[in-house]
Design a protein around this nucleic acid. Structure first.
Lengths: 99, 99
DNA sequence: TCCAAGCTTGGCATTTTTGCCAAGTAATGA
DNA sequence: TCATTACTTGGCAAAAATGCCAAGCTTGGA
């Protein structure tokens, strides 16, 4: 019944478990975006942002499409909002963390 | 509107982004369990399992209660099943990963 | 053809995470 | 009280993740 290996699920989870990557999917949740625009919003080197995007694409969270010189990234799943709501609910019920 | 900081959300995500920890919450999803029983199921040193549990408790995924010499851990959220279904759906739609 | 814009990839030093061992604490029973 | 069970915590070496720089690769325009 468990179609996916634990390691595959962990790969998917790790892909979002990083501040810049989480911000990127939240940006992409409202609209598709190209790499340099994402870099402008989250900061860091362009190559770093590109590597984050590759990692999330391999995990399955996002897709990309080349348009001229630009590469447009967009969400590849419908469940991100529900996924993030779950995290929000855990966070608000346990405000006494170590952050 | 975004009640939680990005870092707090990342902490919550990181807490599940590990093979042993993901297996532990999946075990706890069916029933509460004590530490040595969890160790018997996921392997590794008892101290390692204990540290995993502490980390997930601080994140907010699980709670614990002391009963005599044993400490019983259990899920602290209702949304884990939906959360895991989202991961499953991403994994099954993108089977060509590097795992 | 040549150049520049927009990305990706390689390499590598720094930082973070992991997991074992040893030591410590709390509860229970002899 | 003493020993045992059930955990937790400290410490540290090994492994993994991160992020910058440099170098590459396409695409489109001059």
């Amino acid at each position: 019944m468990n179609a996916l290996s634990t390691d595959r699920k962990v790969q998917i989870l790790k892909a979002l478990a990083h501040p810049a990557r989480l911000e990127i999917v939240q940006i992409l949740a409202s609209a598709p975006c190209c790499v340099s625009e994402l870099q402008a919003r989250v900061g860091g080197d362009l190559s770093t942002v590109s590597k984050h995007l590759t990692l999330m694409r391999k995990a399955g969270w996002i897709d990309c499409e080349k348009r001229g010189q630009q590469v447009h990234y967009r969400l590849a799943c419908d469940c991100l909002p529900a996924f993030l709501r779950c995290i929000e609910s855990i966070g608000s019920e346990h405000p006494d963390c170590d952050c």
